[in-house]
Design a protein around this nucleic acid. Structure first.
Lengths: 171, 171
DNA sequence: TGCTAATTTCATTTTTTTTTGAAAATTTTG
DNA sequence: CAAAATTTTCAAAAAAAAATGAAATTAGCA
């Protein structure tokens, strides 16, 4: 249950924003953890997603109650995923961060950066399998070959389908 | 580097099977860990994938050098994903396990069991966001509404696309 | 039914991952 | 250029996840 400092039934304007903020953070913490991202990364994105103005790191730190280190690392991760970008704020020397909200682009980038490299190394591993194959009795060899063929089809399908997927996303 | 007990250049038949086995285990350990599955689950599946005969649990334990507990839990997980099934072996009271190798089916099941439930709860969370929204100044409210609308489209797209994806997989 | 093998469960231990916090590095500006 | 603000880095601490192993349970068989 979200903490409330108000004793009345109605929430103040600030607190209403906070409630939404908490739901948003919750939402993205879960979303990101499905994608294998640490809690702090989800928290930061969730906070920025419902922020109408770009936030400097120390605001992120104080609003989320996380450490400077976490914030810095989390923002680095989000930057590398292009899930967040910096925006210039005149008269302030701090970097200000803004959430990238086009999920299609985020998704495409995630596939490219996080998934495809694995597909590449999977292909190499399959090649190594084929090399450690030869010289068995024919039945056994055939069984192995079939299995390897299946893996090839899997990686081929993955390699083609996943990048295409981002394009399919019409939302 | 795969350990070898042979000093000669040529590997014995058993050892050749082992080399392939090691690559297979390596392959699936990585694959599964991408999907958030623990190492042991990948190891077991990798072992079974290149096994022409069903294996009882104690074989899995001794060949992989993992504990009984891990094996039991891992097989439970794999069973629930329908990535593995038991097969009856006459004159042996142990359960014997066989890898399910139709990736399309595996994939469909994974989406249904592991992803879709999250999509459901995401929808509920979005509803809660809408409830914690009302009574802001019009501009702020509009900004929030837009953001919420985007999330809705995201979950809708996910909910429709992911199940369809398994069908698209022609391999 | 009682005995034994096979399997599951779960408290504990181990390993891995994430966070913290403070020192180091970098950047900005007076 | 130096002082101050900001950000990054990284060793250590904390937290989370996974593996272990032994006790408890279940299932098969004589």
């Amino acid at each position: 249950m979200p903490s409330s400092t108000s004793t009345s039934g109605k929430l103040s304007i600030q607190e209403m924003g906070k409630e939404l903020e908490i739901e948003s953070i919750d939402f993205f913490v879960r979303m990101m953890s499905m994608l294998g991202m640490p809690r702090s990364v989800g928290e930061i994105y969730g906070l920025l997603y419902f922020s109408s103005s770009p936030l400097p790191m120390d605001q992120i730190v104080s609003r989320l109650g996380i450490s400077l280190g976490s914030a810095s690392q989390g923002l680095k991760t989000l930057r590398s995923l292009k899930a967040v970008r910096t925006s210039y704020v005149p008269g302030d020397r701090r970097d200000h961060y803004l959430a990238e909200t086009e999920f299609r682009r985020l998704f495409a980038n995630f596939i490219k950066e996080e998934i495809m490299p694995h597909m590449e190394s999977a292909k190499e591993r399959i090649e190594r399998m084929e090399n450690s194959l030869p010289g068995q009795d024919p039945d056994t060899e055939n069984f192995y070959k079939l299995r390897i063929e299946k893996l090839k089809r899997l990686t081929r399908a993955g390699g083609r389908l996943l990048p295409a997927l981002a394009g399919l996303l019409k939302f």
